[in-house]
Simulated scan of single mutants.
Amino acid sequence: MATRSLTEIFVLMRNNAIRNRHIYAEDVSEHMALVELYDVEQGSGDNNRMPPAWIDQLEEAQFTITKLKAKINDLHMLHSQHLHRPTFDENSEEEPLIETCTSEITSMFNSIHE
């Protein structure tokens, strides 16, 4: 079996990587470049900084998710009541409640997705 030494290639690539890091170290950080780019596009100065438009959508989605957790717990409770009832009759009061709760959860998920 033939072997090949990759030491020279490794040292060359390592030195190139170190050299490239030092070249770009003087540049502005990526985060600051994005912030400055956003300010230029919006035409706002440093004193008049507004949050991006998607922040409102994020907060609304987070609020809807908290409501969803409560609805899902309610649905879980309705399912457990329906499955653990003492009789096997088909006319149950839980089924319409389960259907309405499921449709509410689905519409809430869809509203977040939009």
Rank of each mutant, 00 (worst) to 15 (best):
M1L: 01
T3N: 02
S5R: 10
T7G: 06
T7I: 04
I9A: 15
I9L: 15
F10S: 07
V11A: 10
V11P: 00
V11T: 14
V11I: 15
L12Y: 08
L12T: 07
R14M: 08
N15H: 01
N15M: 03
N16V: 05
A17L: 14
I18P: 03
I18G: 03
I18A: 08
I18F: 15
R19A: 14
R19N: 11
N20I: 02
N20P: 00
R21P: 00
H22D: 08
H22G: 04
H22V: 09
I23Q: 09
I23T: 14
Y24G: 11
A25G: 07
A25K: 15
E26K: 11
D27M: 05
V28C: 10
S29M: 03
S29F: 02
E30D: 11
H31N: 08
H31Y: 05
A33E: 11
A33K: 04
L34N: 14
V35P: 00
E36P: 00
L37V: 00
Y38A: 15
Y38G: 05
Y38N: 08
Y38T: 03
D39G: 03
D39V: 01
D39S: 11
E41P: 00
Q42R: 13
G45Q: 02
D46A: 08
N47P: 01
N48C: 05
R49Q: 12
M50C: 05
M50P: 12
M50S: 14
P51H: 09
P52S: 07
P52E: 02
A53T: 08
A53H: 06
A53N: 07
A53K: 06
W54G: 01
Q57F: 01
Q57Y: 01
E59K: 06
A61D: 07
Q62H: 02
I65C: 09
T66R: 15
K67V: 03
K67C: 12
L68Y: 06
L68P: 08
K71L: 12
N73F: 03
D74F: 00
D74L: 02
L75S: 04
H76M: 04
S80K: 13
S80A: 09
H84F: 11
R85T: 05
P86A: 05
P86T: 11
P86G: 01
T87S: 15
T87H: 10
T87M: 02
F88V: 07
F88T: 14
D89C: 08
E90W: 01
E90T: 07
E90N: 06
S92V: 10
E93V: 10
E94C: 03
E95N: 03
P96H: 08
P96A: 09
L97A: 12
L97C: 04
T100S: 15
C101I: 03
T102C: 12
S103A: 14
S103M: 10
S103C: 04
S103G: 04
I105Y: 13
T106G: 03
M108T: 09
M108N: 14
F109S: 05
F109P: 04
N110Y: 04
I112F: 06
